[in-house]
Design a protein around this nucleic acid. Structure first.
Ligand SMILES: [Mn+2]
Ligand SMILES: [Mn+2]
Ligand SMILES: [Zn+2]
Ligand SMILES: [Zn+2]
Lengths: 142, 142
DNA sequence: CTTGCGATTTAGAACCATTACAACTTGATT
DNA sequence: AATCAAGTTGTAATGGTTCTAAATCGCAAG
């Protein structure tokens, strides 16, 4: 489970599409994001990948995450002051941030809702992306 | 226009409701937010209020902004890594961030749209707040 | 193969927004 | 006037991120 990328070829391909090389570091960083669908910080990713490549540096983790964001395999998420979080879920989705636990959940975002949201924009506003963030508590069964 | 609070009494009242005192510093900080409806950072607020109270410190600006957030007169907004921005618009609204200029605009958010958005939450997710952030470019007439 | 060379990695310094701290001030209450 | 808590101030500390310069890597030309 730990050091295998789900789909190494598509990673290399996506990187190449953005003029970037594939490297072992980029593979393990991407893998660390895929194997656990939380929204880890750079530090948390660093902690995970050290078991794969013990010599990897935090600077490299930042570099790799930036590379993955640049080739659109990963989204950087900022919903509060504090470390940036990284999300490998490419499907359109909103985020739910549990204030009590700090956990972040992906919430499926139907395209019909997305287009309703975008429709509130007056002419002259050309949106390339929409972020929707819920804050609250999660309760009971989920 | 610069050093007059729109409604000093309601400010004092809201502060009192949260067990906080009114002070000249809190008045000018709040005023600085109201007189220009952009979404300034603490540093930008600091620059503005120095002409009202030249001895005010940056720490106090942070303290005042926190007090205003705490009594719900101001919202702290974070949509990217970088300094927190402050918004005195209490009406439900989304934000549009112009990536080219860095400017942030308030977008009116009809309650009907807001409830549609909230409806995507599965049971067990109890949202207290929703943030909607558009990113893109503003063009032509607006 | 070797060598050349740009891309990548690395450790550590620098940076910057924010928070913590301790001394000082203010102003309401006795 | 003396007291006391809340607020302000300058400055130090913190923490996440970016910068820098020196190694290292890996493809490509010779
Ligand atoms: Mn949180
Ligand atoms: Mn921006
Ligand atoms: Zn996500
Ligand atoms: Zn706003």
């Amino acid at each position: 489970m730990s050091s295998s990328v789900i789909n190494p070829e598509s990673l290399a391909q996506k990187l190449a599409d953005s003029g970037l090389r594939n490297t072992p570091q980029r593979e393990v960083v991407y893998s660390a994001l895929l194997t656990k669908r939380d929204h880890p910080t750079a530090d948390e990713v660093y902690a995970r990948v050290r078991s794969d490549i013990s010599s990897i540096s935090l600077a490299t983790v930042y570099n790799c995450l930036e590379a993955l964001v640049q080739c659109h395999l990963v989204r950087a998420v900022n919903f509060e002051r504090g470390p940036t979080r990284y999300c490998p879920n490419l499907a359109p989705h909103a985020h739910f941030h549990d204030e009590a636990t700090g956990a972040t959940f992906d919430i499926d975002l139907p395209s019909e809702i997305l287009s309703k949201v975008t429709s509130i924009l007056p002419p002259g506003y050309d949106a390339e992306a929409v972020d929707i963030i819920f804050r609250g508590k999660t309760t009971g069964t989920r």
